[in-house]
Design a protein around this nucleic acid. Structure first.
Lengths: 190, 190
DNA sequence: TCGCTAGTTGTACGATGGTTCTAATTGAAC
DNA sequence: GTTCAATTAGAACCATCGTACAACTAGCGA
């Protein structure tokens, strides 16, 4: 997505730009592998095959497997961050927006959410990754802060959002945004 | 913990009893490995080394790695089930009991909770494991059902319990049972 | 005592994976 | 055009892993 630290948007194509594109292609392929086979299925070889490149090219861009997983987790967290920020910045019922975002977990967003969760579990063992994994919660908290002043209420909604996602992933059924909103609303207002 | 389906508590020692003991020793070793290196670190060899036995003995009791992981997840879920059931059956403030159980996640129970979470993530990709992974939520729901009739409130507390555990694991700091109880209490009562 | 089976060991085969290395190719700068 | 670093390909090394297998030990029932 972004250019590497090499130069500043001087070349839109060419060596450096292609390198940056490759990099994001590899991250995308990594997420596809995580989606299909889980984090355990991520190897330089499987990622390379998924991306249609050679194995050594994967190691060229991400020296160690860990580098690759960290980059993938960061990337997926960025997507969620953007979604939440969009809800915050959009006028209207923010709670409904949050409920719909959570409901997405059951549909199109299921695989992404699964990948995100799988990678977040990895984060528990890597202190360097914790801030990234925490971002989702902090963003939800920020959203809640626009709706109430009660810190306990904020904590409750953040925890409930997380738990609802888990429930949806485990139940594997369709999620009713209206119901989700009701639970969140109840957690928010006394 | 239990005897295998062979015979019924006829021998407290000897071949069969020792076999059952070995089995639970191996499961214990598996959880220790998950705690130390994560679920990805679980191999027949690492588990065997942790248990102080030979590799082939691990495969003797658990033919495939999957069998081993399933057994380990089931075992850890059993512990939590027992804890919750104890809270339900104990007279007194059940919400405080639940809050204290959650707070444990930050202390002595941290590694166990981490292992449980790691294994639960695995469950998302193995339908056969989902019922086991769901038990925790069902038990919390059962506990809540003794406190309220509102299904939305129950869903809120269950989700909040789960989310609070996640938060504690991520924040890696001490958890205040009183604060946890306040969040749960707020989720429960309107 | 003796056969049987659970428990146990050591070893090995085939496969996979992380990582490294070398050589080729290509685009950018001059 | 020449030079140089970024990029790509191909192969290989070495470790580990899942699993299988044959042999050996010892408790259990008769």
């Amino acid at each position: 997505m972004e250019t590497i630290d090499r130069d500043d948007a001087e070349h839109t194509d060419g060596r450096f730009a292609r390198g940056a594109r490759r990099r994001s292609e590899i991250i995308e392929a990594t997420l596809a592998v995580v989606t299909r086979d889980g984090a355990a299925g991520v190897t330089h070889r499987t990622v390379a095959k998924q991306a249609g490149i050679t194995t050594s090219l994967s190691t060229y861009y991400f020296t160690t497997l860990d580098d690759l997983l960290v980059a993938a987790l960061t990337s997926v967290a960025d997507v969620y961050t953007a979604r939440i920020r969009q809800i915050i910045d959009t006028p209207g019922d923010k709670l409904t927006g949050l409920a719909e975002l959570i409901a997405e977990t059951a549909g199109v967003g299921r695989e992404r959410a699964l990948a995100e969760r799988e990678l977040a579990t990895l984060a528990a063992r890597r202190p360097a990754l914790r801030p990234v994994a925490r971002r989702w919660r902090e963003n939800v908290a920020e959203l809640c802060a626009t709706l109430t002043d009660d810190p306990v209420a904020v904590a409750g909604v953040v925890a409930a959002s997380d738990g609802l996602c888990t429930a949806i992933l485990l139940d594997n059924g369709p999620a009713d945004p209206g119901y989700l909103r009701a639970v969140l609303h109840r957690a928010l207002h006394h």
